[in-house]
Amino acid sequence: MSEGTIKKFMYVNRKPPYGTVYALESLEVVLIGAAFDQDVSLAFIGDGVYQITKGQSTSDIGMKNFSPTYNALGDYDITKLYVEQESLTERGLSVDDLMDIVYEDEDDDWAEKPSIRVVSRAELADVIAGQDILLNF
C-alpha cells in the first residue's frame, strides 16, 4: 500500500458468533488492519447482528466471550459500525438489544459518541457502493 493513500475498507459481517469462527476471525482481522491507518467501517447484516448483542454470556459453552472487544474499536479509530435495520426487525430485535458501543471524538473535546449507526437497507447499499475494499466474513 503506497504511503499517504487512504482507502475505504469495509468489513461485512453476516454470521452469528460462536457457532462458527467467522465472527471472531473478522474481529481479529479488523484489529490487525487497524495498524494501517485506513478509513475503516464495519457492517452487520443478516445474522451478523447477533455479534453485537448485549449481555452475551459464554461461561456455559466453554468459549471466550469476545463481544467486549467491540468496545475497544473506538481506540483504534474504528468508529463506524453500520447495522441494517431490516436485519434487526426480521430477527425480532431492536437497537436496544445491541451493546452501547461508543468512541471518543477527538474533534469534539473527546465527547463520547455512539459507534453504532442503524441504517436502512437502501442506505447501507449506498455506503457499500462507496467502498474501495470489501472484506467478507
Binding site: Y50, T53, G55, S57, T58, D60, N65
Partner: peptide
C-alpha cells in the same frame, strides 16, 4: 439449549 442462547445475548423472556 439455554447456554447457547446466553452466549448470543438472547434472554429467555424473548
Amino acid at each position: 439449549l439455554g447456554p447457547d442462547l446466553a452466549a448470543r445475548g438472547l434472554s429467555e423472556d424473548k
